[in-house]
Amino acid sequence: MSGVDTIGFRRACRAEWTKLRTEAGHGWLLLGLVLVTVGVGAAVSASVPCPASGCGQDQVRLSLAGVSVSQALAAVTALLLVGGEYGTGLIRTTLVALPRRGTVLAAKATVLSGTVLAVGSVAVLASILAGHLLLPGAGYTPAHGYTQLSLADGPTLRAAAGSVLYLVLVGLLTLGVAVAVRDAAVAAGVVLALLYLFPLLSHVVTEPHLQRLLARLGPMPAGLAIQATTNLSHLPIGPWAGLGVLALWAATALFLGGTILRLRNA
């Protein structure tokens, strides 16, 4: 790490943080992330009944269902962090001020991760709390074989922490793509396609092998395996391995973005 100038990095982080903080849309976006996560999670928790014991539902997954919607907001947060700069030409100023382009990307990634980590934690904790309160009313009671949702339960804690990491990784994946394609609109299209097309395709595919393969490779289906707490042996991919697949996607995108940022004119 001899090449990395820690003071420069810290200054870059502060600059990125200021941009994020002062950009008009970001506050609303992050508030939306929390509200959507909790709202959708609560709606699903309340509307998927468990009428009898052995209804086969994964109550942790239900309460965290909002993450699959709010990931779009995490992606937009990342897009605005980069796309806005390319759109207005600010990126040139940024790169003149901080000629080490790798540092700029690292600073953006750090600020984004920290922000999504903080906001995502609030969103996920509130979702678990909503599930804790709502799920027993929908029939997830000890009589039906469910204990009340609690973070003291190991798998639940893993699912909750993993969901926060999932949001962070989706943000990083988006950041990498946005830097690579240098256009917020195209980046939005690419990221949404990456997230949604794998599960859509596996609806259509009739061959079980290919279906499992799609569930293992897709950033969204694999990454969301982290939320599973029941029937683990039947999942196409294990919880942490699945999150690892998403991490690989994010790392690849960031590497690609970093390389392109270094090699090309802004």
Partner: peptide, 18 residues
């Protein structure tokens, strides 16, 4: 904002289907 608009449209059409 293109990123916001695109995400909103895709999340509103494709995601509910999913």
């Amino acid at each position: 904002r293109s990123a916001t608009a695109i995400t909103a449209v895709v999340a509103a059409t494709v995601f509910p289907h999913l």
